[in-house]
Simulated assay, not measured.
Amino acid sequence: MITDTLQNLPRYRGLHKNLDIAIRWLMAHDVAALPNGRTEVDGEAVFINVMDADLRDAEGAAFEYHRRYADLQIDLTGGERWGWAASGTEEKPFDEGADVGFVTGAEEASGVLGGGRFALFMPGEPHKPSCRTPDCARVRKAVFKIEMRHDKGAYLE
């Protein structure tokens, strides 16, 4: 997991070729001007999902993880809380078609998006996005899906 300001995002070039594609696109375009839904950047390798999302309570919410894609999450309006876990216990079988699994575990890090910040969750990392803050119950957000495959699943206990 990496969290930083959008201003510093170019510092992460070179970590993965598809992350480089996402960074170049983001530096040249206004993601806030995109309509809701999917925007392709480089086919299935890099695409963006823009959405309006009602936020949930963090307490009791499961962590999600992906095997094929990293999530680069940016709040366009508002600011959501996110959580991260180093490991977790599988709740149900991984859904290959949707590239998502859910685990329970101890939250080990958290933060708030908005204000020009991003969070990058790598494949296999349990993360809990879209949680309420005291000041925000709804956001408009962009999630860059960046193919970086991690075939071993989440970091399960």
Rank of each mutant, 00 (worst) to 15 (best):
R24L: 11
V46M: 09
K92G: 09
Y69E: 01
Q7Y: 10
V103C: 13
D75E: 08
V31E: 01
G115Y: 13
A32Q: 08
P129S: 03
F121L: 06
E59M: 15
H127A: 06
A137Q: 07
A53R: 14
L6K: 01
N49Y: 08
D99Y: 02
D54I: 06
R13C: 12
G114S: 07
G78S: 02
Y155F: 15
A28P: 00
S87C: 12
A106K: 14
G124T: 05
L113D: 01
L34F: 13
F47N: 08
V31K: 06
H16T: 03
K145E: 06
A61C: 02
L34P: 03
I21S: 07
I146V: 07
F94L: 03
L156E: 14
A32D: 08
Y65M: 02
A142W: 03
G116Q: 10
L113W: 03
L9F: 08
L34W: 15
F63R: 01
G14H: 10
M148K: 05
R138M: 06
E80D: 13
L6R: 08
F144G: 01
T89F: 07
T39S: 12
E108R: 09
G105F: 07
L9E: 04
E91F: 10
A154N: 08
A58N: 03
D95W: 10
H29A: 02
L34D: 01
A28H: 07
L76D: 00
H29S: 02
V41M: 13
E91G: 10
A98M: 14
S87G: 14
A86E: 15
R67E: 15
D30Q: 00
G37R: 09
K145T: 07
A98G: 13
E44S: 13
L72C: 04
V50H: 01
E107S: 10
A33R: 11
E59P: 15
G105P: 00
M122V: 07
F102L: 15
E147Q: 13
I74C: 03
V100F: 15
Y69M: 02
V46Q: 11
I2E: 00
C131G: 00
I74K: 05
P129T: 00
G101N: 07
T3R: 04
G88F: 12
G78T: 08
M148L: 03
E157V: 13
D57T: 11
A154M: 10
D42K: 14
L156W: 12
D151G: 14
R67W: 10
